[in-house]
Design a protein around this nucleic acid. Sequence first.
DNA 1: CAATACCATTCCAACCAATGAAAGATGCCT
DNA 2: AGGCATCTTTCATTGGTTGGAATGGTATTG
Lengths: 276, 276
Amino acid sequence: MTVPPDTDPTPARGKRPKQGEPVIDRALSLLAVFSDRRRALTLSELARHAGMPAPTALRLIARLVAWGALERLDDGRYVVGVRLWEVASLSPRGHGVREIALPYLEDLFEVTRHHVLLAVRDNEEAVLIERLSSKDATEVAYRVGGRAPLRSTAVGLVLLAGADQQFQEATLRKPPENEPGVEHMPEGQLRRTLSDVRRTGIAMIRRSAPSKTVSVASPIFDAQGSVVAALSIVVPDGSTPPNVLAPAVRATARAVSRNLGHLAEISPDVRTHSQG
Amino acid sequence: MTVPPDTDPTPARGKRPKQGEPVIDRALSLLAVFSDRRRALTLSELARHAGMPAPTALRLIARLVAWGALERLDDGRYVVGVRLWEVASLSPRGHGVREIALPYLEDLFEVTRHHVLLAVRDNEEAVLIERLSSKDATEVAYRVGGRAPLRSTAVGLVLLAGADQQFQEATLRKPPENEPGVEHMPEGQLRRTLSDVRRTGIAMIRRSAPSKTVSVASPIFDAQGSVVAALSIVVPDGSTPPNVLAPAVRATARAVSRNLGHLAEISPDVRTHSQG
DNA sequence: CAATACCATTCCAACCAATGAAAGATGCCT
DNA sequence: AGGCATCTTTCATTGGTTGGAATGGTATTG
């Protein structure tokens, strides 16, 4: 039986061997080959996707394995190692916020029993740092460690609204990648939405795929008053109304912010909002 | 001007410290400098601790930053980056088990409101993969991403008991590093304990520092029947008695095992255990 | 305000680790 | 047994890597 070996999805980026590329870049490109769908890879797969000869890949991989960045399975395949995970757990914007936020997320999760998400921004996307879900919860679009677009998710909107002006403008100018299941938002409305998010401390997104859900998100601030993360709750559309969820989400986000050293002075324009 | 004095100000760590070391090893040694206590470091700190000249460190760090393995703060210091955390989240033994176990851990946590831990073994130590704690919980010894000794923790005993015979023997032969707050266990007793752990599926440890606690742990098996992780609960000594916790911990661990594909046949010698 | 100390960054010529084609070793399928 | 693909080792060549020295910047001290 001829197993379709590997429908090489990576475009043949030219045979040009990456000669002259710094060694570190090559090693890192090996790590970058791993993804949600590729968690265990053979030597040749790694070499092919990283675009380097097998002997070169083998030599680099050997060093990575020796250190613990990669681990070798019994069948010869390689996976990301615990040692790398260990170092990565020191990432302030990764496990850092998570560590502080987790107890509060748990409280929120326990009360609502719905998905609770924590995300930070990395360049032009949101990276999911934590997700609490009950075993019987609705299907959810993103996994921990995965990336989500800024413009079409609740956490994304919060992070975008909290980014510096320059970045926001650059993002708004870019073509709106349309995501299935989310209504596309024209630029004018998007600008108003971001403004609203800043004013109210709440972002809300309704999506129809992979399941009909409503997400409500709120920003988390650090001691300097910058938005460092976003917290959200995802519920099946039609269950708990968003305006009921908002206070709980806001309160939780503020609790985390306070723990991060944010002086939660009452934002003047949040005291009253008869929105809705 | 004049020639600087002969007394070299830099610690004479050998004239040619690490010349000839592979580049990757150097880069990785930079990552290894980061620790729980060192989460943000300057260039010179990194260079010093990694044992390399500043220009060399700078060059390597530049590549790491470009890729996202490190991030540079406004004050010039470097921290572990989100990109690295992202790749690391693909580690099967890191976030892998965690992803599957988390909902069950949450259930256990919600019911008991005590620390719930998840750990895997890496060489001769246990690595803490997850920890759920309430805000008002008792002080706990280990943090997520940290390491714990095998012989003096409940999860460690479970992992040790589940390791291959060869590794166990090697570990037993090693000198028992004495940890503060935990009673030292002589080899004979330790062997009996490990045997008990295998038989009953439960390990228990009482410790007095940093606070008086009791830990109860149970193994998590994969589809091949190997112990891949350990789950434990940590409660203040004198609160809930261990024999009450044990069934809950065992049940949770088995639920996770089942989800990992472990055929949870009833181990013949676990059916009854009147262990007082 | 000058002197001092430390840190970050750039430069460059000597050097050696990195490279990858080739061939051998191993395992799998026909 | 033969064909095929993957993994591994070897080795002469070479270009990336190296780190002392110098420069600019910043915080601290006298």
